[in-house]
Amino acid sequence: MTRLNVQKTYKIFIGGQFPRTESARYYPINDGAGNLIANMCLSSRKDFRNAVVAARKAQASWAGKTAYNRSQILYRLAEMLEARRASFIEEMEVLGLSKKASEKEVDHSIDRLVYYAGWCDKYTALFSSVNPTATAHFNFSVHEPTGVVAAVAPEDSPLLGLVSVIAPAICGGNSVIVLASEFKATSAISFAEVIQNSDVPGGVINILTGNMKELVPHMASHMDVNALVIARQGLDEKSRNAVVENVKRLFDWTLKVNEQDPYLILDLQEVKTTWHPVQQSASGGGGY
């Protein structure tokens, strides 16, 4: 007996849930041959605003988890993605990627999550410092998460590009709102299903689909966003100025995003330096 295909409705991912865009707008995504695969949500500035509220709410407790626990959760993401490897490859082939390219995309995404899972409890130890002083003080610099990060993922690498933007940000205790690849967005929303099943607290990762030119000015000007990562060509001058006006950290990862690199974690960290007096043991006191 023939049966009708049951098509998946791809929605967006905000605060651990899958709402539709509040704007009720959509755009079509086609396969390699030009046939319609799915209608995706064309996210609006209000969807972005809602995502920022969710991300802000989630950030402090995410940063407050132990580095070890964050590491476990990133590794869990990799496990869950591995379990769905075949379906991700199939979904990407439908988008028009070759079988080989699709396999590479998924395998590298899994490996990259494991890579950043490993870094969670190591980057502070490796990059913090005890600084020289001329007085009886400890002076040390440690890393703290920037806070809420907005990011634009690459267009051509639908899964690996997305993972490469998300992982360094959440590894360091930030929460993120990512704009996924516009015309290969199906993998990104399927990845959101992986996220939802991986102990990542709701709101730590939020994924929107839509148009970069429309959303980036709002990402740049929103005062509750602490950093903006652009991993796709096309940041306009007006948005660049809005970033500067809002004392926001801006990073261009267009060329860096294909590498796995602990310095991407550090991009989204702030360095806090603290003085602490030490009692000199020579003074005859109890020492420290």
Binding site: R49, V52, H218, S221, H222, M223, D224, A242, N246
Partner: peptide, 9 residues
């Protein structure tokens, strides 16, 4: 201002 605000201000 036309810009979404942050609670910290």
């Amino acid at each position: 201002s036309g810009m979404y605000q942050a609670g910290q201000y």
